[in-house]
């Protein structure tokens, strides 16, 4: 039941986001952090990343912001584990969530934040083009 609900939610979101430009749902423009510190916040590029992901451009999505791709892989693995545990109700179950996956969320968010701003500040490399 949980696996089916997760999959159905993902499918509905995918088709909705493909039809409606995400920029009409989420306000575009620079956030408070980037305006005041002249650096990217951990969420910067998230809207563009989701837009690229629903168009199928994985590379562009990761370069804009890796959080949506990580979340997608993470949720797909959870769905597969839930489905496996439901089908194999009497056998050994797979863990739906591991500790390293949870810590990985923090690592992806903070790691990308640090890396992107090092590239911006020290090497003047700006993939998103918001500052340079």
């Amino acid at each position: 039941m949980a696996a089916s609900a997760l999959l159905l939610t993902g499918i509905v979101l995918f088709f909705v986001l493909r039809q409606i430009p995400i920029e009409t749902i989420v306000k575009s423009g620079r956030c408070y952090f980037s305006t005041h510190f002249n650096m990217y916040c951990p969420g910067c590029g998230g809207t563009r990343a989701v837009s690229a992901l629903v168009r199928g451009d994985i590379i562009d999505s990761i370069l804009s912001n890796p959080i949506p791709v990580y979340a997608l892989v993470f949720l797909l693995r959870m769905w597969a584990a839930l489905l496996y545990n439901t089908v194999r109700s009497k056998g050994k179950k797979i863990r739906v969530l591991y500790d390293w996956e949870a810590w990985g969320i923090l690592a992806v968010v903070l790691g990308h934040f640090i890396l992107r701003n090092i590239l911006l500040v020290l090497f003047h490399i700006d993939y998103l083009g918001d500052f340079i």
Binding site: R95, L97, A102, I105
Partner: peptide
């Protein structure tokens, strides 16, 4: 123990990440 430890870790991670990414 492992299941609820992972949930506790996830809660802490979301609590920290929520300051920066919070749609």
């Amino acid at each position: 123990g492992e299941d609820y430890k992972t949930i506790a870790i996830l809660a802490l991670v979301f609590g920290i990440v929520g300051f920066f990414v919070n749609p």
